[in-house]
Amino acid sequence: MLGFWYGKRLITMMMYPEMYQAVINRITDFYLEVNELFYEATKGHLDAVLIGNDFGSQSALMVDPDLLRAYVFEGTKKLVDQAKSYGLTVVHHSCGSIFPIIGDLFDMGVDVVHPIQALAADMDIETLQKNFKNKGAFCGGVDAQELLVNGTPAQLSAAVEKIKQVFPTGLVISPSHEAILPDINPANIEAMYAAVHRS
């Protein structure tokens, strides 16, 4: 059902671009208004804000990057600029394979791209370090699709040590998805966090 809903939105973008843009603009305006109330109410108490939407599938972007640049990123830039005006670090969330637009996100002022979905195409830590070193930070990297669920504590420790070697700075090491699900062995979680804090 979710796939049908996403597909319907993408078809609307192509068939009725003016209507699609009008809807996107209205959504952006809504979030700008609501966020301003939130930022004013929490001024001085926040360090960072998470914004974004899922643009990627396991193997590629769900829509051509030029369409995102044409219809979506103008609103995203407004949301980033608004958060920056309050001195906040901006974390942009999108699951999946989003390699072609990571540069766009950093150019818009995004500070941290979240998450690194480790098994998605072109989202391995070596590729990200090679292409985006010193351009911004990342959050994620520890595979939550297979490794955390089916791996051993020793494998988790080894994976974290590799991440620390390949990406010594500019990376918050965490599961590649924000949730730690019930089917994950607690020993794997413990091993992951112990390896993160091991000097």
Rank of each mutant, 00 (worst) to 15 (best):
L2T: 14
F4Q: 13
Y6H: 14
K8N: 13
T12Y: 12
M13S: 09
M13P: 07
M14G: 12
M14V: 12
E18Q: 15
Y20V: 03
V23P: 05
I24C: 11
N25L: 10
D29F: 03
F30T: 07
Y31Q: 05
N35V: 00
E36Y: 00
F38T: 15
Y39F: 13
A48Q: 09
L50N: 11
G52T: 02
N53E: 15
A60T: 13
M62C: 10
M62I: 10
P65D: 03
L68Q: 00
Y71W: 06
V72Q: 08
T76N: 08
V80Y: 01
Q82M: 03
K84V: 04
K84S: 02
S85R: 15
S85A: 11
L88S: 00
T89S: 10
T89D: 09
H93D: 04
C95V: 05
C95A: 11
G96P: 08
G96A: 07
G96T: 09
F99S: 06
P100W: 02
I101P: 00
I101Q: 00
I101A: 00
I102G: 04
I102K: 04
I102A: 03
I102R: 02
D104W: 05
D104I: 07
D107F: 09
M108P: 01
G109C: 06
V110S: 02
V113C: 01
H114T: 06
H114F: 07
Q117R: 00
A120L: 03
D122L: 07
M123K: 04
K130I: 06
K135Y: 08
C139A: 12
G141N: 08
D143M: 02
E146H: 14
V149F: 04
V149Q: 02
G151N: 04
T152K: 09
L156A: 05
A159W: 04
E161N: 13
K162G: 04
F167E: 08
F167G: 11
I173F: 11
E178G: 15
I180H: 11
P182H: 13
I184V: 15
N185E: 13
N188W: 02
A191V: 09
A191D: 09
M192H: 04
A195M: 05
V196E: 12
H197D: 11
